[in-house]
Simulated assay, not measured.
Amino acid sequence: MTTPAAFARPAVAALGGGHGLAASLQALQLVTDKITAIVTVADDGGSSGRLRDEFDILPPGDLRMALAALCDTSEWGLQWRDALQHRFAGDGPLGGHALGNLIIASLWDLLGDPVAGLDLVGRLLGARGRVLPMAAEPLRIEASVLGADPDRPDEVVDVVGQVEVATARGRVLSVRLHPDPPAPCVPAVEAVEHADWVILGPGSWYSSVMPHLLVPDLCHALVQTKARKMLTLNMMRHDGETEGFAAADYLEVLTAHAPDLHLDVVLADVSVDGEEADLLTEAAGRLGARVVRAPVADTDTPGTHDPLRLAAAYRDVLDD
């Protein structure tokens, strides 16, 4: 029997990286089984940084986290998720490496194709969706930061590297990618083109979310796609690279990096209220979007999204 169109689950492309994207994916798999995660590939720290430097490969860490977030909830899927996330202790050559990073790097070496390797790990996990890199080559982030040098607080300094940008003092003014332009991941571009919904965020704004807009083919697809577009605001709005941000500032940064991009929905927690909510509504209106405020915070872990609450909010928006 054919499923009525009204009950068809939407195809969603979710863009971001790190823990923010993982939380979004955990929520989305409760709403739809048509998920494509498009993940930043500019990480240069920890296990990912060591592997990309040694083997000249895409940093696997954020890709591994996205795959783990989409794992099947059977005993098999959960055991493999835990195996992928296992991190070796000690100061030896394996110390600090996540097993999943090593498995992904090994499959890339064997198959010679990053997308095929990620798809194979996805099948191992029974992943409820697909994970793709946002670009076909490892990238470096460079940011212009006001006040990065404490001895020169009024000067703009160029900061290079995802870790350096994420932890830089001062205010990030803009970000760039090297190489410029980066080679696109064609399946990722196609996923955006064919999606019903595209979701940006949450995640480290300058080092996980904005880089997607700096891949020209991907940004063009985001602008031209017929999919509806939603921005999920971060819970921790005044942390690290976005110190001092109000909710509306995220939208201003988005516009500065992709002036032709329009949105349909901006999803914010109910903690965004009062004057801050009013300013957010004005900023969203300039992008063609409405603001949806919902209780999506994890009350046990401040500054993070609760996957079940976020799933409920996504369901309400996607079904509307």
Rank of each mutant, 00 (worst) to 15 (best):
D278N: 12
I103S: 00
A66G: 03
A166C: 05
A313S: 09
S207Y: 05
V160Y: 09
R50D: 06
R286K: 13
A256W: 01
A27S: 09
D72M: 01
P184G: 09
A221T: 04
G244D: 11
P182E: 08
A258P: 08
V121E: 02
Q224A: 15
V159G: 10
M1G: 14
L287F: 10
E190A: 15
G147P: 02
A5H: 13
L124Q: 12
H212W: 08
T301A: 12
D316C: 05
T2I: 12
Y206N: 05
D180C: 06
V186L: 13
T301W: 05
R237Y: 02
W76D: 01
R228C: 06
R140K: 11
L132N: 10
V317R: 07
E193M: 11
V296W: 02
D298H: 10
H86W: 14
R152K: 14
V253T: 14
D151C: 01
R309S: 12
A191M: 03
R293T: 15
P179R: 08
D320K: 00
L84Q: 06
L15C: 08
L102F: 08
M210T: 13
L78Q: 15
A188P: 01
E164K: 12
V31D: 04
L233M: 10
G244L: 11
A23F: 01
M230S: 03
G61S: 10
A294W: 15
R176Y: 00
T225M: 09
V266W: 07
V31A: 07
L287V: 09
A148F: 07
P302I: 01
D298N: 15
Q162W: 04
T3C: 06
I141D: 04
W76I: 08
I141F: 02
F88C: 11
D149T: 06
L139H: 04
L124A: 13
A313I: 00
F245L: 07
G303E: 05
L146T: 01
G288V: 04
D91W: 00
A168S: 14
G203R: 03
A14L: 03
A98L: 02
L118S: 04
L310V: 06
D151H: 13
R52M: 08
V159I: 15
L94T: 11
E193K: 14
A183H: 11
T3Q: 12
M65W: 00
G112Q: 10
G77R: 09
K34N: 14
L111M: 14
M1K: 06
D239K: 14
L231N: 00
H257S: 09
A105I: 01
A116K: 12
A6M: 11
V266T: 04
D119Q: 13
A221K: 07
D82S: 13
L58C: 03
G170T: 11
V115M: 06
K226D: 15
H97Q: 06
T299R: 15
I141S: 01
L84K: 04
D217L: 08
A14Q: 03
R123S: 12
V209Y: 03
R286A: 12
A166H: 07
G117L: 05
P59M: 05
G122D: 07
G112L: 09
L67P: 05
V121N: 05
S144R: 15
